[in-house]
Simulated scan of single mutants.
Amino acid sequence: MTGDVWTLRCRKPNGDVQDGPKYIMPTGGSGAGLYVWGRVPGRPVVLVEGELDALHLASVAEEVCTPVATGSISGARRAQHTARLKAASVVLVAYDNEDTPQVKRACRWWLDRLPNAIRWKPVGAGDPCDMHRAGIDTRAWVRTGIDYAR
């Protein structure tokens, strides 16, 4: 990866999500990117769905993990991304805290391909940003997940 821009995604204001998808992107963009904030080889990775969740985790725990976003629960499913994540010491699959069949299948997809991965659900909220807004220490949540996985 050279840091090239693959796509630009914009989140609609909350009032506009009734009329279609929450996120939009210009024609020609690819939703198959892996959004990585930092180094992966040998480091713990926290794999999240949303780019904003990854940015939040980078802001509170970048010295203990590399936050990575797939852009959606079915995003970034490419051989080169899987290979890159296999180089991590551990991968916490931290997709949204929902027990829907779609989220379970999405988590299972990564767990089946990454022998270094465990499912690590957000606690007390739907995702890391929601955890932060609820006053939950997301840095401690990350550290606990890393310790548990090792």
Results as ranks from 00 to 15, higher is better:
residue 105 R to P: 14
residue 27 T to P: 14
residue 88 A to N: 07
residue 93 V to H: 00
residue 117 A to S: 00
residue 12 K to A: 09
residue 84 R to D: 11
residue 133 R to A: 10
residue 94 A to L: 09
residue 4 D to S: 15
residue 109 W to R: 05
residue 113 R to E: 07
residue 98 E to T: 00
residue 44 P to H: 04
residue 83 A to P: 14
residue 62 E to L: 09
residue 32 A to C: 09
residue 17 V to G: 01
residue 83 A to Y: 13
residue 112 D to G: 02
residue 3 G to E: 00
residue 101 P to Q: 13
residue 124 G to W: 00
residue 54 A to I: 04
residue 53 D to A: 07
residue 25 M to R: 06
residue 98 E to N: 06
residue 9 R to T: 14
residue 84 R to L: 14
residue 134 A to F: 13
residue 148 Y to N: 11
residue 27 T to Q: 15
residue 147 D to C: 06
residue 27 T to F: 14
residue 59 S to T: 09
residue 38 G to D: 10
residue 147 D to A: 11
residue 18 Q to L: 13
residue 13 P to I: 00
residue 127 D to N: 04
residue 136 I to D: 03
residue 146 I to Q: 00
residue 106 A to I: 03
residue 131 M to K: 10
residue 38 G to V: 01
residue 127 D to I: 11
residue 15 G to A: 07
residue 9 R to A: 09
residue 65 C to M: 06
residue 16 D to Q: 06
residue 64 V to R: 08
residue 25 M to Q: 11
residue 49 E to D: 06
residue 109 W to G: 07
residue 9 R to I: 05
residue 83 A to V: 13
residue 1 M to S: 15
residue 105 R to Y: 09
residue 140 A to G: 05
residue 15 G to Q: 12
residue 32 A to I: 09
residue 150 R to E: 11
residue 12 K to T: 13
residue 71 G to Y: 11
residue 34 L to K: 03
residue 108 R to F: 05
residue 5 V to I: 09
residue 17 V to R: 10
residue 52 L to I: 13
residue 24 I to D: 09
residue 120 W to N: 02
residue 148 Y to G: 10
residue 97 N to R: 05
residue 29 G to T: 10
residue 88 A to S: 04
residue 100 T to C: 02
residue 148 Y to W: 15
residue 128 P to H: 03
residue 32 A to P: 04
residue 68 V to S: 03
residue 46 V to D: 02
residue 83 A to K: 11
residue 10 C to K: 13
residue 76 A to W: 00
residue 17 V to S: 06
residue 128 P to C: 12
residue 129 C to Q: 12
residue 113 R to Q: 10
residue 8 L to Q: 11
residue 29 G to R: 08
residue 55 L to D: 09
residue 39 R to I: 02
residue 50 G to V: 00
residue 106 A to Q: 05
residue 43 R to M: 00
residue 143 R to W: 14
residue 13 P to T: 00
residue 102 Q to D: 13
residue 46 V to N: 02
residue 64 V to A: 12
residue 29 G to W: 02
residue 17 V to N: 12
residue 41 P to L: 01
residue 111 L to K: 01
residue 27 T to L: 15
